[in-house]
Amino acid sequence: KKKYVIKVYFEDTGKEVEIEAESKEEALEAAKRLAEELGLKIKKVEIYP
């Protein structure tokens, strides 16, 4: 089964997080949740198959 690796870059902090997920949708949801939890804004998202 294919996994996606999503790199999320946050504004202000210069922080980046990698998330593995089964689908792009799932990964983007996780990225949004994470940003909310951390109180950060997402600057850029890169998706690698």
Rank of each mutant, 00 (worst) to 15 (best):
E37M: 05
Y48V: 13
K1H: 11
A35M: 02
L28M: 11
K44G: 06
A27F: 02
K41H: 09
K3H: 13
K32Q: 09
E16R: 06
E36R: 14
K1T: 15
K44N: 13
E26G: 14
V17D: 03
E26K: 07
G14D: 09
K2A: 11
K32N: 11
Y9D: 02
K32H: 14
A31W: 02
Y4L: 08
K43L: 10
K41P: 15
A31P: 01
V8P: 00
I42F: 02
K2G: 12
V5Q: 08
A35Y: 02
A21W: 02
E25I: 08
Y4T: 04
E26T: 06
E37Q: 13
E20C: 05
R33K: 13
E46Y: 08
G14Y: 15
E22R: 05
Y9T: 10
I6H: 01
A21F: 04
A27T: 02
A21V: 10
A35F: 03
E37F: 10
V8F: 10
A35P: 01
A21K: 05
I47V: 14
S23D: 12
K24E: 14
E46M: 05
I42Y: 02
A31F: 02
Y4M: 05
A21D: 02
E46W: 05
K1Q: 13
K15M: 09
K41I: 10
E29F: 14
L34H: 11
Y48N: 07
A35W: 02
P49F: 08
I42G: 00
K15A: 07
K15C: 01
V17G: 03
G39R: 03
S23F: 09
E16D: 15
K7T: 07
K7A: 04
I19Q: 02
I19K: 01
V17H: 14
I42T: 00
K7V: 10
I19P: 00
L34C: 03
L40C: 03
I19V: 04
K15W: 05
V17M: 09
K3L: 08
L28V: 12
E26R: 06
E36S: 14
K2S: 12
T13Q: 07
G39K: 09
L40F: 05
Y9W: 15
I47D: 03
F10W: 15
A30P: 00
A35C: 10
R33L: 07
S23W: 05
D12V: 09
E22N: 11
V8G: 00
L38Q: 04
F10H: 00
E11L: 06
K24L: 10
R33T: 11
E37G: 09
K7R: 15
Y4S: 02
A27Y: 03
K24C: 09
I42A: 01
K15T: 15
L34W: 06
E25H: 06
L28R: 07
K32G: 07
A35S: 06
A31R: 00
I42C: 02
A31I: 04
V5M: 06
A30Q: 08
V45E: 01
A30Y: 11
F10A: 01
R33C: 08
I6W: 05
R33V: 09
Y9E: 07
E37P: 01
G39Y: 02
I6S: 02
A21H: 07
K44M: 11
E36Q: 13
D12E: 12
R33E: 04
K44R: 15
I6D: 00
K44Y: 12
K7G: 01
Y4A: 02
E18D: 12
K1S: 07
G39L: 02
T13L: 11
V45N: 01
A21G: 13
E25Y: 13
D12W: 07
D12H: 08
L38S: 05
L40Q: 07
K2T: 11
V5D: 01
A35T: 02
E22S: 05
E25G: 07
E29N: 15
E18H: 08
E26C: 09
T13A: 13
E18K: 09
K2N: 10
E18M: 10
L28C: 02
V45G: 01
R33W: 07
E46R: 02
I42R: 00
E46Q: 04
E18N: 07
Y48H: 11
A21I: 06
Y48W: 15
E16N: 12
K41G: 07
K32W: 09
K3A: 09
I6T: 03
S23Q: 04
A31E: 00
F10C: 01
E11W: 12
T13V: 09
K32P: 01
I19N: 01
G39E: 06
E36Y: 15
R33P: 00
E36H: 12
K3N: 09
L34Q: 03
E18F: 05
K15L: 13
I6V: 08
E25C: 04
V17T: 14
E25T: 13
E20P: 09
E16V: 08
E18L: 14
F10Q: 00
E37H: 09
E36L: 13
Y48Q: 10
Y9V: 11
K44S: 12
A35R: 01
E46H: 13
L34V: 15
F10V: 01
S23H: 03
L38R: 03
G14M: 07
S23P: 00
I42K: 00
L28W: 14
V5T: 08
E26S: 15
E11R: 04
A31Y: 02
I47N: 02
Y9N: 03
V5W: 12
Y48F: 14
G14F: 14
E29K: 09
K44P: 01
K1M: 10
S23V: 03
K7M: 04
V5H: 08
K3R: 05
E11P: 01
L40Y: 12
E26M: 10
E22W: 06
E18C: 15
L40T: 03
K3F: 11
Y9M: 10
I6E: 00
G39N: 10
A30K: 12
E16Q: 08
L40K: 05
I19E: 01
K32Y: 10
T13E: 09
T13D: 08
E16C: 03
I42Q: 00
A30W: 15
K24W: 11
F10I: 01
E46G: 02
L34A: 08
V5K: 11
K2M: 15
V45K: 01
K41Y: 12
L28N: 09
R33A: 07
F10P: 00
V45H: 03
K32D: 12
V8R: 00
E46K: 06
F10G: 01
R33G: 12
I42M: 02
A27N: 00
L40P: 01
E37K: 14
I42H: 00
K43W: 12
P49M: 12
I47C: 08
Y9G: 02
E22I: 05
E20V: 12
K2R: 11
A21Y: 03
G14S: 15
K32M: 09
D12N: 11
K41A: 15
L40I: 03
Y4R: 01
Y4N: 01
V45L: 06
I47T: 05
I47Y: 05
K32V: 09
T13W: 05
E20Q: 07
L28Y: 14
K7I: 06
I6L: 05
S23L: 04
E22Q: 07
